[in-house]
């Protein structure tokens, strides 16, 4: 994550002044940095649809496109959190709709275990979230992003995040 870029964006998407940037570090005006893994076949197209339909959503999420949520190794998620992401969202096809038949179901199993590992390690399991959004569901994707941002805002910054 290029910190220069991520730090200078506020919720409104404008360049932040240095005082605003200072402020954003405080818990009160906390703007989370969230990483989203979106599968190529459903959620990435869904995100695209949300964009072309001009749906409004908070700009706290950076998307990485993957071929399938089944390609998302749990170490990618932990690596992101270790690098300071406040939350990680994984968005894929609905069960039964996977382009590769069952990649999303594998992710679902991994996700359940990973949440438990995260909780045992002393971190909030809600920092990671798994959602399904198809290519036709720009609204579901928007809703997912919005609620993810709200959820992470309530949790506060990642305790391992560098200021």
């Amino acid at each position: 994550m290029p910190t220069g870029v991520t730090n200078s964006l506020t919720a409104a998407g404008h360049k932040a002044t240095s005082s605003q940037r200072q402020k954003a570090r405080g818990e009160k005006d906390f703007e989370p940095r969230i990483l989203a893994f979106c599968c190529n076949w459903c959620s990435y197209a869904g995100a695209d649809l949300a964009g072309t339909s001009r749906r409004q959503m908070p700009p706290n999420v950076r998307i990485i496109r993957v071929n399938c949520t089944g390609r998302v190794d749990p170490s990618f998620i932990l690596d992101a959190l270790n690098q300071g992401a406040d939350g990680v969202l994984i968005s894929g096809c609905h069960p039964g709709d996977c382009h590769y038949t069952s990649g999303n179901l594998k992710m679902k199993s991994r996700f359940a275990l990973l949440q438990k590992v995260l909780e045992e390690a002393g971190f909030e399991p809600e920092r990671i979230h798994l959602q399904w959004a198809s290519a036709a569901e720009g609204d579901v994707f928007t809703e997912g992003i919005t609620s993810m941002v709200e959820r992470i805002k309530a949790l506060g910054p990642n305790p391992a995040r560098k200021d």
Binding site: G70, D73, P74, S75, I77, L78, D79, K106, M107, K108, S109, R110, F111, A112, L113, L114, V117
Partner: peptide
């Protein structure tokens, strides 16, 4: 492999034929 446990979680999620819970 950078994270032993994450790799194990990855494999178990793929090979276990059981509900995530």
């Amino acid at each position: 492999v950078k994270d032993h446990g994450a790799k194990i979680v990855s494999a178990l999620g793929a090979i276990a034929e059981m509900e995530p819970e």
